[in-house]
């Protein structure tokens, strides 16, 4: 359905913005969360592929803002404002946060999916951005693609085919 449009591809722990004739996509979300923030009036959409809930988990030198929910979501909003999005018109759709493996052990990294989802929702609430639709949790990987012209988020999984939210 989006075949005649340019696709902006966003990798893991990255963020980017698409306008008008473009769509924006990220592939193979597992425990990661894809956060789409969009302004319908300007037909502009941003996507961040979040890996971890909180930048306080970072023990390295340099901080990659798009990796964490608490830094990635605000950073995306800032970039979108610079590209002409109107702050109070922003809405969000989110997908991901699955648990890919069922382990008996109660390890923290196994619960990372739900923690990512919670952290993303926290940030969106703080920024006053309503979540219009979500497809989170479960145990399937997801590829998502957003079309700023229709504001539809297409979600593809291996076992349940394709759906729009």
């Amino acid at each position: 359905m989006f075949t005649n449009l340019d696709v902006v591809k966003v990798g893991i722990a990255q963020l980017d913005v698409a306008i008008h004739t473009q769509t924006i996509r990220t592939s193979g979300l597992g425990s990661c969360v894809g956060v789409v923030i969009y302004d319908e009036s300007k037909q502009i959409a941003g996507l961040v592929h979040v890996m971890l809930p909180d930048s306080a988990l970072s023990r390295g030198g340099q901080l990659t803002v798009a990796k964490f929910a608490d830094t990635g979501v605000p950073a995306l909003v800032e970039i979108m404002k610079k590209r002409g999005a109107i702050p109070f018109k922003l809405k969000a759709k989110i997908a991901g946060g699955a648990q890919m493996f069922k382990f008996t052990s109660n390890q923290d990294s196994m619960r990372i999916g739900p923690r990512n989802v919670d952290a993303v929702k926290d940030q969106l609430r703080k920024l006053g951005i309503p979540i219009i639709a979500e497809d989170t949790g479960g145990n399937s990987g997801r590829t998502i693609e957003f079309n700023p012209q229709t504001s539809k988020l297409q979600i593809r999984t291996v076992n349940q085919g394709v759906k729009d939210i």
């Binding site: 893991i12 722990a13 592939s27 193979g28 979300l29 597992g30 425990s31 990661c32 890996m51 971890l52 988990l57 970072s58 023990r59 390295g60 340099q62 990659t64 990796k67 699955a98 890919m100 493996f101 069922k102 382990f103 008996t104 990294s109 196994m110 990372i112 145990n139 399937s140 990987g141 997801r142 590829t143 291996v158």
Partner: peptide, 25 residues
Amino acid sequence: PPALASDMFGAIISIGLIEVSQISD
């Protein structure tokens, strides 16, 4: 004990990157 899943490679391998990603890119 090993756990099994059939799905997209990105979704599966990313769980193995969680520890590393707290320190490095």
